[in-house]
Write a protein that binds this DNA or RNA. Structure first.
Lengths: 230, 230
DNA sequence: TTTGTAAAGATAGTATTACTATCTTAAACG
DNA sequence: CGTTTAAGATAGTAATACTATCTTTACAAA
């Protein structure tokens, strides 16, 4: 069977829905490649237009600016990942097993999902690690948040937070632990590859070690008796 | 007694040492104010020059570009914080107490250090939370790392990593836990203030809760028996 | 006193970036 | 067949991120 996966995105993320046209899909495809290649700072709509074979004005009809495009890509990624999470944890009852699957999804290399023809999830995952936080680490964050642009990220956090509570209903910081898992998975990956002395994984550069670190961190906290006492 | 605190910075961070002249000190003072006010993206050397009452060319004699200036500010901050850590943990023997002091320093509002006349540490702390990661989350990171521009950050991590080992010599991930403490302290602070649903502190917006979360996270891991067994 | 040197001020100029506007062509739709 | 709509083509602008050059000021050595 051949299945196409389409993710419904918040309409405020774009001026014209890139998933509804060939040009739009090219914008997504090539922006992922270009940002991955040169980084978000060096990425411009002009270079993107050249890569696609269209003009700057053409891109601006889809996205207000490159910042919005970045938010779009991150939102897309988090939506896709939440779907992966729900798929991979479906029919599993043990919340510990579920949480381990999530940690694995977050901390290990993503494979390209062939059901999404114009998104290379593997590259996108790399982009999220290096550029993802720039989507909200800025002065516009509250404005963008009002437009619900970060909803996919929040939704995923909420899902993970609920798994955490399933593991230990008395744990006091489920949401913070959820966002911590996500961010730490990415930071440790970045550090491992670029500033290895900030990690304990520099020698082998093995993502499996990040998984073990995170599992230790998370399940120590959840199994800890310190909050069952009172 | 009146004490002046000067931090010796890596010479590759600047073209001309800003601590050695009036203009240089003004650059530091006003860049902190401007970045804090408008964010790093909106910050330009032209605006900075106008704020100071000098010209763009004048700033370029001190810093190659605004990215280098950001690295300078972050490096300065981490150096200053390492000094604070060594000061505040001096004469304390219990590594748990020391680590708690560190968590407190990282996760709570910093007060302006009057011994550094042209640096407002309180504003700088805010800048580090929002803009700090941009110093290394880019394509130049390896190059900049070769010039040892991130040494202060690494040094602080190493100090914290050693405290972790003092708490539990058999803990397997001291460096990763150290960098995790630093990054999580900042992220949770940012989320608490701007995307509160990603944390459990949205209601009170109280930094003390971040401290408790981090202490729980860290000491659960360090007290965990899971790695003492083998 | 002169001369050299170095910081800083003043001014100009350039390539690129981040857009906006307008006009034309092409396709798609009823 | 005429109308809407996307997309191509072209132009233009303000701001950004620099680089270059020339002058003034200051202080220090010869």
């Amino acid at each position: 069977m051949e299945i196409q996966l389409q993710i419904k995105m918040n309409e405020k993320l774009f001026l014209r829905d890139p998933e509804q046209s060939e040009l739009g899909k090219k914008i997504i495809l090539h922006s992922i490649q270009l940002i991955h290649l040169n980084g978000f700072e060096a990425f411009t709509f002009k270079k993107l237009a050249e890569a696609i074979g269209t003009t700057e004005a053409g891109i601006y009809r889809y996205f207000e600016n490159k910042h919005r495009l970045l938010i779009y890509l991150t939102a897309w990624y988090w939506s896709w990942l939440e779907y992966q999470v729900s798929f991979q944890t479906n029919n599993i009852n043990d919340p510990v097993v579920k949480l381990k699957r999530v940690i694995n999804l977050l901390a290990t290399t993503v494979e390209d999902d062939i059901r999404t023809s114009y998104v290379d999830e593997s590259l996108l995952h790399q982009i999220i690690i290096t550029e993802g936080t720039k989507a909200y680490l800025n002065k516009r964050v509250s404005e963008d948040n009002k437009d619900h642009l970060f909803k996919p990220y929040k939704d995923l956090c909420a899902v993970i937070g609920n798994m955490i509570l399933e593991c230990n209903p008395r744990y006091k910081y489920p949401k913070s632990l959820a966002s911590t898992i996500i961010e730490v998975a990415h930071f440790q990956n970045f550090f491992m590859n670029h500033l290895p002395s900030l990690t304990d994984f520099g020698k082998n550069k093995d993502e499996a070690e990040i998984v073990r670190f995170l599992e230790d961190l998370v399940f120590s906290s959840l199994q800890s008796t310190s909050f069952d006492k009172e």
